[in-house]
Design a binder for these strands. Structure first.
Length: 158
DNA sequence: GTTTAGATCAACT
DNA sequence: GTTGATCTAAACG
């Protein structure tokens, strides 16, 4: 995942406050979805009201509904089902229809209330992938040894 | 000025 | 072959 801190972050969609990015200035734990090329990307609003920060879901492990995910992604290895932002949203079936979804609502896409036994010592950080502005901010976080984490790729023009 | 849709191309698998 | 907080253009208000 990668962090995007609104007002301080030129690479954030919330850098300039617009009606669209209001979602990130609103209540936390909601989904912010945007389109890239022909795919989608999903963010989770993390800031309290008025702050405008969010984290981009860049990769993940499919733990539930894996059959549906395989159906949407085709015959690919498990570790590739949600590798990359576009793949993740496709595996989970997230579109702009899910914009502002409340992630605390267990009826649909939601956050796990008991976030696994994640050892903090396995979390590493580094520069963000694919961003042109503020490319060197080490606001990317991932789990060491996780096969769904892709290699670092800097933006061509950064 | 803001938002959406569509394209492009270097890096990755 | 696939992917992507890019880029440009057209539509919107």
């Amino acid at each position: 995942m990668e962090a995007y801190n609104g007002p301080d972050d030129p690479a954030s969609h919330a850098y300039t406050r617009t009606p669209r990015s209001q979602i990130m200035y609103g209540p936390p734990n909601r989904l912010y979805v945007y389109q890239i090329h022909t795919h989608h990307c999903a963010n989770i609003v993390t800031s309290p009201e008025g702050r405008g920060a969010a984290v981009l879901l860049r990769a993940g492990i499919v733990t539930d509904g894996i059959d549906a995910a395989r159906e949407r992604r085709g015959a690919v290895p498990d570790h590739r089902l949600a590798r990359g932002p576009g793949n993740l949203t496709r595996a989970l079936g997230i579109t702009k229809a899910d914009l502002a979804t409340d992630l605390t609502d267990p009826s649909g896409v939601h956050l796990d209330p008991e976030p696994s036994t994640l050892d903090e010592s396995r979390i590493e950080s580094g520069p963000r992938v694919g961003v042109r502005l503020a490319a060197d901010r080490p606001w990317r976080f991932w789990i060491r040894g996780e096969p769904s984490v892709s290699a670092y790729r800097r933006h061509p023009r950064a």
